[in-house]
Nucleic acid binder design. Structure first.
Length: 333
DNA sequence: CGACTTTGACCGGCGC
DNA sequence: GCGCCGGTCAAAGTCG
């Protein structure tokens, strides 16, 4: 179990569950079949429109299939996570019972390392690799708060700029092995002692998506962020006790719904992401956020809050109808 | 002229 | 020990 696995897990859980919840939301108001026929019927006037409609239905079914597959993958991933977590807890308890903490990897220097772990590390080599990587990850989590933001941009653009309201100074750029796009390194330059760093790189899978990785916490307020600077179709909702922001954007690839579950956190340390189309943030420190139970709770809260929020439903309806209008206009030309 | 960007060099961790 | 790789430094270049 390494951090990349967890990142995948958390991103999947947000995106996919959101998807399934959207499906659920749509199903609540209109069963899927009806939803589809509503799309089809107005277009049954001409054969070409019929064709187009059936293509759309086909496409919709394909997407639904894909969502199902991904949901299954997510379930499997959560299952794996659960079992690993249980194992880790068992190992942790075992170590606590013995008054031991797993020894830190020998090769690593004690950079920002938890003193307890460092001091108690001893010559005993009983810990497994898995254990070591778990502890390494935990230490890293303690050391820095890491969050990721995905921003859709023009794939042809070459600049690696993610506008988030903070001032950044670029101090390096590298081409990494796993991604042909260069990775840019930024430091927060607004406050002289601000420790926050940012890495920006285009996604290897989708070059139109910029992946910004934030490390650390700003020790100053966002210089350019008025509290109400959310975009026109950006709204702030509360999922139970969990504040978040939601926005609907019409991009070239269609209306996309953004849920920012870190709104509360961002008010303190992370900037908002105006224009963000896909915004997933992994705050790795609280264990509870990672737990499947918590994620399930979040999903349920999200679903109920979204379906109850008239602003959201209106915006969603507008985005969907806008998309259909776009397609029917495009189909005519 | 100062602030910022670019880019090759350098450093340290890690795997073999 | 060696080489690879990600991250950082710092001199040179660019821009307003």
């Amino acid at each position: 179990m390494d951090s990349s696995w967890l990142e995948l897990d958390s991103s999947l859980s947000f995106d996919l569950n959101l998807n399934s919840q959207h499906r659920g939301f749509l199903n609540q108001t209109q069963p899927k079949e009806e939803f589809q026929t509503e799309i089809v019927n107005p277009r049954s006037k001409s054969p070409s429109m019929n064709e187009e409609a059936s293509l759309l239905v086909e496409k919709l079914n394909r997407v639904n299939e894909e969502n199902k597959k991904l949901s299954q993958l997510l379930a499997l991933t959560c299952e794996n996570y659960n079992s690993l977590k249980t194992q880790m807890e068992l190992l942790g308890n075992k170590n606590n019972d013995q008054g031991l903490v797993a020894s830190a990897p020998k090769k690593r220097k004690a950079e920002g390392m938890d003193n307890n772990v460092n001091q108690q590390g001893n010559s005993e080599n009983s810990s497994t690799d898995e254990e070591e990587s778990c502890h390494k990850r935990l230490k890293e989590d303690m050391k820095t708060k890491i969050s990721r933001v995905y921003v859709r941009t023009n794939a042809t653009e070459t600049n690696l700029v993610v506008k988030d309201g903070y001032q950044w100074r670029k101090y390096g750029q590298k081409v990494t092995r796993d991604n042909p796009s260069p990775r840019a390194y930024f430091k927060c330059s607004f406050a002289p002692r601000c420790p926050v760093k940012k890495k920006v790189q285009r996604s290897a899978e989708d070059r139109s998506i910029l992946v910004a990785t934030y490390e650390g916490e700003h020790n100053h307020p966002n210089p350019s962020r008025p509290e109400t600077s959310l975009g026109s179709n950006h709204g702030v909702a509360t999922l139970g006790s969990i504040p978040c922001s939601a926005s609907i954007n019409s991009s070239s690839s269609g209306p996309m719904i953004t849920l920012d579950l870190t709104h509360q956190q961002q008010q303190q340390q992370q900037p908002p992401q105006p224009g963000t189309v896909v915004n997933e943030v992994k705050n790795s420190s609280p264990d509870q956020v990672k737990s499947p139970a918590f994620q399930q709770f979040m999903i349920e809260k999200m679903a109920s809050s979204l379906t109850k929020d008239p602003t959201f439903t209106a915006a969603l309806a507008a985005a969907i109808s806008g998309r259909f209008q776009q397609q029917s206009v495009a189909g005519r030309w």
